[in-house]
Structure formats: C-alpha cells, structure tokens
Design a protein around this nucleic acid. Structure first.
Length: 833
RNA sequence: GCCGGUGUGGCGGAAUUGGCAGACGCGCGGGAUUCAAAAUCCCGUGAUGGCAACAUCGUGUGGGUUCGAGCCCCACCACCGGUACCA
C-alpha cells in the first residue's frame, strides 16, 4: 500500500475489476425483493457536465446502498440519442448524424465508467438504433389502432429557426424551448397523440403519487388545467346558427353586455362576407394571424377588437348584445367564443371600458362599490339584477342556473382542460420514422408490423432548409400500400424525441427482446421504477408524456402498472458564482456563455472521481441547488486523504501482522464511546442515505466518525478488535459514496470479498444506550445549566438533582416554582414567578 | 394575478416528533511541526458588553399559542421557480 493517496491508480484499477467481475449485472431471477433505481438518460451531446454528475451520483449511492442492503437492483443507463444537435452537426460538418451520435455515446460511456457508476451496461439502450425504434414504431401503431393517433390540419407552433413544428409543451414564453426563437403559427397537417383522452386520469392519479414532490404535481395539475363550467347557447339575431360559449361563471349570465369570438372562429367569415364590416374585420383577422404567440399573449397590451355587425340574444332575458371579435379570445380553448361580463371579469372590464360598453353588476361583492367599479369584482357575493336568482349566494346560483339551462335545452355543465393533444410530427431527419403510409385509395395505413422497423434511409441530404429531409431520399418515400398493394407514399416526418423517452424505462426491463418491445412478465417484476431521479425541467414534458404512455400501455394489456415512477427526486441545478462586467458577484447556473462552467474531467484529473462524487453529494441536499465551490472540493479531497492516512497508519503502525479479530468488547469509557459512534454512524447513514436521501448529513456523520477515530487513536491503550471494527465500519458505510478508495483499502485490509457485494451493516441498539445522559436544565424556558444523570432517571431524581445545582438555586432565589416540566433524558424546566 | 417553494453565522448548510440554535464542511484567527514553505496536527471562531466567570441579544418582519417556537397559527415582506388574456 502506498503512503500517498494515488486516486488515479486506485480508480482505474477498481473500474477494471468491476468490469471483469461483471459486478453490476442484474439478475432476472425473481428470488429477491427488487429495487429499480433510474436516472434520466442523457442526450449524447459528447460531454458530461456537472448536472449529469450530480444526477448520476445520487442514483449511484442509492443503487449501491440498496444492493448492499440485499435488494435485487436494476440500475441501467442508455441514450436519448435522436434529436436536433446531431442533425445540425451533419449540416455544419457533413458528418452523418449516426456516426456523430455514436462517437458521442462511446465517449460519454467512458466518462460514466470513469466516475465509477454501478450500471448494468448489458441493458444499455440507444433510442436511435433500429432495435429500439422498431418497437417505438410498433407502439405508435398500437396507439393508431386504438384511435389514439390521428392526423389533423391545424394551426401549429412553428419554429422558424429549427424549421420544425413544436408541441405546446415545447413553447416557452412564446419561444422555442431549444433555440429561443419566437414561435409563429402555421397551418399544417400533422400527427397528434390523443393525450386529452387521459386528462382526467393524468390529473386524478397525481393524488396517488405521494412520493412525488408537490411542486411537480402542482405544475402538472396546472398544465392539465381542469376547469368546471357550462356551455351556454346564444342565438344570433338574423343568423341561422347558434353561438355556443364556455363559461365558468353561469351565475353572471344576467350581466352579459356583449359577446366576443376569436378572430379564427369559423363564423366570422360567414357573418361578415359582403357586409360593411367585412373590410375592417378581415384586416383585424389578418393582423392577429401574423402576430407571434409572444405578441398576442403579452399582458401589458391594450385590448383590441372589431364589431362584426351582429347581435346575440341572451337566453335568460332575451336581451340583444353586440358581437365582437378580439384576439384576447383563443380559438383552441373552450368554444372559441365567450360571453362578456365586464362587471366580474377583468379582461372584459378592460375591453368594455375601451369600447364604451355597458357594465352591469350582477353579484354584490362585499366591500366593493358596484356603482363606481375601477376593476372587475371577481369575488363571491350575493346575486342581484338577476330576476328569480336575486338574493342567492352566487356559488349556489352557478348550480341552479346551470340546471335550469339544462332543463330548457339552452346549455349544460361541462369540463374543460387546458391540455391539448400532443403534436408529435417533426420535419426532421434524426428521429424515429412515423410508420404510416398514405395510399390514394385507402388513405392513411400503418406499415405492416412484420415489416418493422421502417429504417431511416442513409441517402439523405442535410441542408437545413425546406421540408423534412426524408423527401431528399430516392428510396424512402415510394412504397406499396400494405392494404391494397397499390403504389403509396410514406410519411416523411419523424417523431418528436419525447416519444422515445416515454417508455425507455420499460425497455430496460427486457432490453434485447426481438419478439416484442418487452416481456410483460419481466416488466411486471421490475416496474414501477422505485426511485426516479432527474432535473425539474422535465416536470411537465417528459414526466407527463411518460405517464401517458404507461397508462396507454397498461390499457393495451402490456403491463400492470398504471404509473411509471413511484418516487421522484428532482435534483437541483449546479450553480456557480461569477463576476459580471460591473464586478458584481452573481450566482447562476453553470453555462458556457457566463464562463462559470467547471468540467467534471478537470475535477477528476486533479482530485479523482471519488472526490468529485463526495463533494457533489456533500455540498447540499439533493433537491436544492448546489453552489459549486473550489474550496469545498479541496475539503472533500482533504477528507479522503484523512481517511486514507487513517487506514494506512492502522495497517502499518497499529495492526501489525494480525488480521483476524474476535468480536470486540467495549468495557471502559473510551471504548464504549467509540462503540457508540460505530453504531450511531451506521444508524445515521442508513437513515439518511437509504431512507430520506439526505446524503449531505450522512457524509457529515461519517466525517464526525472519522474525527472520533482520530481522537481514539491518541489513547495510550488501543482496543485492537474494536479499532479494527471502527475502521471496517467506516469503509463499508463510506463505500456507496466513494466506491474506489474504500474498495482499495478494504482489500488492503486483507479481505477477499468486495464491498459492492458486502452486506450493509446493522447497528446494535444496545450500544446506542448510554449509561449516562446529559439533561438540560431550564428556568422559564431559558438554558441555565446541564447535568449528567444515569440513563432513564425518573422525574423525582431529575428534579432533585436539578434543584441541587448552584445555578438553579441562585436563579430561583426567593421566587416560587409554579410548575416543573420534565422530559426524561432530555430536559427539565422550572417555571418560576 | 394564480400555484409551488425558500428565507438560519463571513459562506455552503445542520437541527428527523415543539425541547441545548449553528452539526459537518469552507473561510478566517492562533499555536505545534519545519531552516523555511507546502502538507499535516491541535485550539478558537453568531453578535454585543466584560480581564474573566458570565450576562444580554439572536433563525426575514409584526403579532399569537405554549412551561418552552427556527419548527405550530394569523398577518405581512423579500427572493426563487412554474404558469397565465384559459373565459
């Protein structure tokens, strides 16, 4: 054993041994309780960043801990390897996306191995490989057969820079999630998945996920956006079709003073064609069509609109109200038209003020001057100006009016969602081909399942312009119809890569199956994922799509579980301070443009992987953001050196030739206190690392333990068996965090077995019971003194001893003791007056 | 606006069930070792007053409950994240 901690040699030595021993291969033998720990698989960009290291270090500690605790652990890794960067690299450098991606996967696999993560590499999946996307296509076809995939011509979100459409979930602040270009609208015929069919279940099941952060559940709930209300039918005076509106406030029907249709509403053209209003309305429709999502939804914007020349008839009182169009009403929510109640809705209020429309209050809201409204009164109150409903509470009126409308056939209660169907077509090359074929005779037909996969062609030009790159292939597009055998054409769009990542966790359960996407028996053993770990940025997109897939696959009878992820841990970002141009110190997410990036490889080269892992786990609890500190890394490195020296000196200076020890006995005070620390540390690490995932405090307790061993070592007399036990315990409990150094020293101690396979130690409760405890003495809740008492001393003894303390006598003085509170072994409080 | 979260030393953070606030680490100060330095080891380190023993104050603000509150309740402030003309 070298006297210096040579992390480079130790780490490569053990990584090699683990590989040779196939240390982390998962058994499909269903003889033990299973534990499935999963980290979100990466996009193979080529370089691992600190966020990855954090994500995977957390997962690795859990995986190693569970394995040592006797579980059959599944801990896989793979690649979310379709996507734009590969295609952009192809456009820029002329490298084929596959070879670019494959090189990156190879590089990153080596980086992951160099960090000592305990993955079962036999189960590696890459979504860009035909053996994976074949089953992606198969699943798509099952969706199609179940009526859950359809093609529709619709205005869609279009990113002019990426030259592709985007799902609603990929539009962030009106801009492309990926390149931040403002998104525009375009009319295109595209494939959709009917996620809205599952809106209710996606929402309801959230209640059954206690292991998910409230934050993520709230975000999904918000995104699904369920609202209860009513659809109300208004007649249009002089027009033969009815105008149906959606409202959550049917109680305000008597306060309707005008109506608004979305500029895209299908009636608009019919109603205005050939009228004096046509020109102005067309101009308005034209203008709003050209506005970006960003401009149209901007809050500060003043209300705009046009009167279209028609009046609607209020079904409850026969009153005629003018109909406007305005872009504050969206075509894709509700019915695309609203009844406007300016007295009780802020948007309607602003519009009414601008256009000089009536404002009629119908709910008397306490503490609001209804004659001089300065803003809409949206709160609860009592019905007024509403004929037979006057005097009711407005909440009751909602129910009553809805029921009355229903009985008269003028409306009905209904539920609306903000969630839209998932647009999955992408005008890109590097994705799973949508396995659909268009035949003039038969329409859209899925590819024959026996012919899967529909392979991506290789004769494709990458120009970054125009429609889908697949059109440039000479071989791909033309095919025969699987139904009638006639000439037909393939779909040339590819799938959103979020489909690929919506079921990869199922493929890991049976990664090499060539007959089906996975064997249900294997999936039913491994699923759900017991612990899923990843960034919160996937709270809506990936985590909702994956839930949707799981539900559909469940309904298809392919797996029992309806929810994929039992417990979810969203790790915080890695941030680092930097100085901006005005020399202000700012903390921000590591990013190239800010120049505050620390590359994992730098840290590994300077301090080793164990130090990198230790620091990242120690610096903050996993769900909080982690403030990178170079000094902190030094500290972690110092600690590992301290451990190394401790064991080195033990082997060389203390232990001598002896390597076998009897069960230790702890008889004197110092031995007892070391024995206490041994067991207290096991308990603390078991609970913190294995239970509540507070790795920072688990590590802190191991540090305390090491400090304690150092102190013990200074004793004149060392109880060798006990000391040996302390050292061995230290190595075992530290192993999940820093596997290389501990494995090395374990073998230096002469052990033949491996720590990765070693049983997690149990603690001895008896050792945790102290003979003497320290009890806090308070007067009126303020700390006055402390005293040592035999363990479990009763109230009488505690009080008597405390009353004898000088400070207590002094503090009580001539005052009276009103009450004495004793919490045995903890505290005694005298209440004095 | 709505939803979720956070607020504790110079810094990252502990305090798990209402019971010693500040574990552990960083930084800083002092000492030992060294020709010297690095490394290492030891001691100290919330604020104020005091030579000291010690006293007083102290977990964003204001109030409350309690023998006792960082933790529970009420009202507010600040910051972070999500979301939004969603009718």
């Amino acid at each position: 054993m070298r006297d210096k901690y040579d992390f480079t040699a130790i780490e490569s030595k053990w990584q090699k041994i683990w590989e040779e021993e196939n240390a982390f291969a998962t058994s499909d033998e269903q003889d033990k309780e299973k534990y499935y720990v999963l980290e979100m698989f990466p996009y193979p960009s080529g370089k691992l960043h600190m966020g990855h290291v954090r994500n995977y270090s957390i997962g690795d500690v859990i995986a190693r801990f569970k394995k040592m605790s006797g579980y059959n652990v599944l801990h896989p890794m793979g690649w979310d390897s379709f996507g734009l960067p590969a295609e952009n690299a192809a456009i820029k450098n002329g490298i084929h996306p596959f070879s670019w991606t494959n090189d990156n996967m190879n590089d990153m696999r080596e980086q992951l191995k160099s960090l000592g993560f305990s993955y079962d590499w036999d189960r590696e999946v890459a979504t860009c490989k035909p053996d994976y996307y074949r089953w992606m296509q198969w699943i798509f076809i099952q969706f199609y057969k179940k009526g859950l995939a359809y093609k529709k011509n619709n205005p869609v979100n279009w990113c002019p820079d990426c030259q592709t459409v985007l799902a609603n979930e990929q539009v962030v602040d009106g801009c492309c999630e990926r390149c931040h270009t403002p998104v525009t609208k375009k009319h295109l015929s595209q494939w959709y998945l009917k996620i809205t069919d599952y809106a209710d279940k996606l929402l309801a099941n959230l209640e059954e996920l206690p292991g998910w952060p409230d934050k993520v559940k709230a975000m999904q709930k918000n995104w699904i956006g369920r609202s209860e209300g009513a659809e109300v039918t208004f007649k249009i005076d002089g027009f033969d079709k009815d105008l149906v509106v959606y409202t959550t406030r049917p109680d305000t029907l008597f306060g309707v003073t005008y109506m608004v249709m979305s500029p895209e509403h299908p009636y608009v053209k019919e109603l205005t064609e050939g009228t004096e209003y046509e020109a102005a309305v067309n101009k308005y429709v034209e203008e709003s069509a050209h506005k970006s999502e960003l401009e149209r939804t901007s809050l500060t914007k003043e209300k705009t609109g046009e009167f279209i020349g028609y009046y609607a008839i209020n079904p409850v009182n026969g009153k005629k109200v003018p109909i406007y169009i305005s872009d504050y009403v969206m075509m894709d929510y509700g019915t695309g038209a609203i009844m406007a109640v300016p007295a009780h809705d802020q948007r309607d209020f602003e519009f009414a003020k601008k256009f000089g429309l009536d404002i009629i209050p119908v709910v008397d809201v306490p503490d609001v001057d209804l004659d001089n409204l300065t803003e809409a009164a949206a709160a609860e109150g009592t019905m007024i100006n509403s004929e037979e409903y006057n005097g009711m509470n407005n909440k009751e009126a909602i129910k009553k009016i809805t029921a009355d409308l229903e009985s008269k056939g003028l409306g009905h209660g209904t539920v609306n969602y903000k969630l839209r169907d998932w647009l999955i077509s992408r005008q890109r090359y590097w994705g799973t081909p949508i396995p659909m074929i268009y035949c003039e005779k038969c329409g859209w037909v899925p590819e024959d399942e026996a012919n899967l996969p529909v392979l991506l062609p290789t004769d494709v030009e990458f120009t970054g312009k125009g429609e889908s790159p697949l059109t440039t292939s000479k071989t791909f597009r033309k095919c025969t119809c699987p139904k009638c055998g006639g000439a037909a054409e393939r779909e040339i769009d590819t799938m959103d890569t979020f489909l690929d990542s919506s079921w990869y966790f199922l493929r890991y359960c049976d990664a090499h199956n060539e007959e089906m996407p996975f064997d249900p028996a294997k999936v039913n053993y491994w699923m759900n994922v017991d612990q899923y770990i990843g960034g919160v940025e996937h709270a809506i997109l990936h985590l909702m799509y994956a839930r949707f897939f799981q539900m559909v696959l469940h309904d298809l009878g392919l797996c029992d579980a309806e929810e994929p992820f039992k417990n979810l841990l969203t790790q915080g970002m890695v941030i680092k301070g930097y100085y901006d141009k005005d020399d202000n110190y700012i903390k921000a997410k590591m990013s190239k443009s800010l120049g505050n990036v620390v590359a994992p490889s730098e840290i590994q080269a300077k301090y080793g992987s164990d130090t990198a892992r230790l620091f990242i786990l120690f610096a903050a609890p996993p769900e909080k953001e982690l403030d990178w500190s170079d000094e902190g890394v030094e500290g972690s490195y110092r600690f590992l050196n301290r451990v190394y020296r401790l064991v080195y000196e033990y082997i060389n200076d203390i232990r001598g030739e002896q390597s076998e020890f009897p069960e230790p006995k702890a008889e004197n005070e110092t031995d007892k206190s070391l024995n206490y620390m041994i067991n207290a540390t096991i308990k603390k690490v078991t609970e913190d690392a294995g239970g509540r995932f507070n790795f920072n405090t688990a590590i802190a307790s191991i540090m305390e333990f090491v400090n304690e061993i150092y102190k013990y070592k200074q004793n004149a007399e060392i109880n060798l068996p006990l000391f040996n036990k302390a050292i061995e315990t230290l190595l075992v409990v530290l192993n999940p965090f820093t596997p290389h150094i501990t494995e090395e020293m374990w073998s230096q101690l002469g052990h033949e077995d491996r720590l990765y396979d070693h049983a997690w130690p149990a603690y001895d409760n008896k050792a945790l019971v102290k003979d003497e405890v320290e009890v806090i003495v308070q007067i009126n809740g303020k700390l006055k003194d402390k005293m040592k008492l035999p363990n479990n001393s009763n109230k009488e003894v505690t009080e008597e001893t405390a009353r004898g303390l000088e400070k207590v006598i002094e503090a009580i003085g001539d005052k009276t003791v009103v009450k004495v509170i004793v919490v045995p072994n903890k505290i005694i409080n005298f209440v004095v007056k």
